[in-house]
């Protein structure tokens, strides 16, 4: 069974998924769509929202070994719904996909898991919070979390401790994705301190660092003229953080959005046009691995460069995701995700 064909359709919310609005709050297939002025309810909203088409728990971390070597780490659980209901057993219309990766300056280890919802193999419960697929888990109370993943060639076991509040993107967590009004619910915990052990073919490596956990769900996140995105999560040495994304459009224009985060968690959202991201250099396989990122409103003009240019996620749906260094007006580290280049 060739799952790739339909995974493309399910997990890359591009043109095929962009359904028109059928009525207030729902789309043509009955999925709930995000509305402005969200009222989040925690811990319930840390859990799954099966009535929305797509959702993810997306953690990236910049790590450093004792010898100073930088590492990148990713743990992601995607949920994709075939129908807006939870269901039980094999017929439950919820599909789950896990991605885990470790990036070293020289290597990029990737693995993927797929699972059906409804049989217990994968899922997310809110209270107590646990997100899992197979033996991979992300569990805890959001002040502290434990996170594991395994693959034939690597594994990790990490402990996370929150050192700041949740922050909400866009308009209090309502993140607009296109001029036409497509949007998602989007909040993050960018203040995790993380430590643990990476098991790599090179050996076990103790690491510490910062992790950034994104939560996002929607039913129609992209407009039908949008083909991919470039997403930046940057942590500057002065304690400020910045999230920014650029959605590529078929007309050659981009839709950008950014959130400026102060060291104590105050946020300033920026709408389309405030952020400018310009590719500076392409890798051998034609993906921009050096960027100039500007947010003039905060005096940001930095160069973002991949630590390992070959951080392709060779999963069912290929994309690029890896740790970066930041230089220029602000120095720091971060993560870069790019889709639509394969």
């Amino acid at each position: 069974m060739n799952v790739k064909a339909f995974l493309l359709a399910l997990f890359l919310p591009c043109t095929a998924m962009a359904q028109g609005f059928a009525g207030l709050g729902t789309d043509a297939d009955g999925f709930t769509v995000p509305e402005p002025n969200p009222q989040f309810d925690f811990p319930a909203d840390h859990g799954a929202h099966p009535d929305y088409r797509i959702e993810w728990w997306y953690l990236t971390a910049n790590l450093t070994a004792e010898d100073g070597t930088p590492y990148g780490l990713q743990w992601t659980l995607f949920r994709s719904a075939l129908a807006p209901e939870a269901g039980d057993g094999w017929t439950a219309p919820q599909l789950w996909m896990g991605h885990a990766a470790v990036t070293t300056p020289d290597n990029h280890y990737v693995t993927e898991r797929l699972a059906r919802g409804g049989i217990g193999q994968a899922g997310v419960t809110a209270d107590p919070f646990e997100a899992w697929i197979d033996d991979w888990v992300l569990q805890g109370d959001w002040d502290t979390l434990r996170m594991t993943a395994s693959a034939p060639d690597f594994a990790y076991d990490m402990a996370l401790t929150a050192q700041g509040p949740l922050i909400f993107h866009g308009d209090a967590g309502y993140s607009v994705k296109s001029a036409a009004g497509q949007a998602s619910y989007y909040y993050s915990q960018p203040f995790f301190a993380i430590e643990g052990t990476l098991q790599l073919p090179e050996g076990d490596i103790a690491v510490t660092g910062n992790a950034w956990l994104d939560r996002e769900w929607s039913s129609q996140p992209l407009a039908d003229n949008q083909t991919g995105w470039d997403w930046f999560s940057l942590s500057f040495d002065d304690g400020h953080k910045m999230m920014g994304f650029r959605l590529q459009q078929t007309d050659g224009n981009n839709f950008t959005s950014a959130t400026w985060i102060s060291p104590d968690g105050d946020t300033t959202p920026y709408t389309d046009g405030a952020l400018v991201a310009t590719p500076l250099a392409m890798s051998d396989d034609d993906v921009p691995v050096r960027w100039r990122v500007e947010l003039p409103a905060q005096g940001v003009d930095v160069t973002v460069a991949a630590i390992n240019e070959n951080a392709w996620m060779t999963t069912s749906v290929p994309y690029w995701e890896g740790p970066v260094t930041v230089t220029g007006s602000h120095a720091g580290i971060g993560y870069l995700e790019m889709t639509g280049y394969e």
């Binding site: 069974m1 060739n2 799952v3 064909a5 339909f6 359709a9 399910l10 075939l82 129908a83 269901g87 094999w90 017929t91 439950a92 219309p93 599909l95 797929l114 699972a115 059906r116």
Partner: peptide, 27 residues
């Protein structure tokens, strides 16, 4: 009966054509 999400690739020599309604297959 197989679970296409966990089955090794090539277990079923069935490659649904592009546009196959996988939702119908699964649910």
């Amino acid at each position: 009966g197989v679970d296409p999400l966990t089955a090794p690739s090539g277990i079923g020599p069935v490659a649904p054509a592009e546009g196959t309604d996988i939702a119908a297959f699964l649910t």
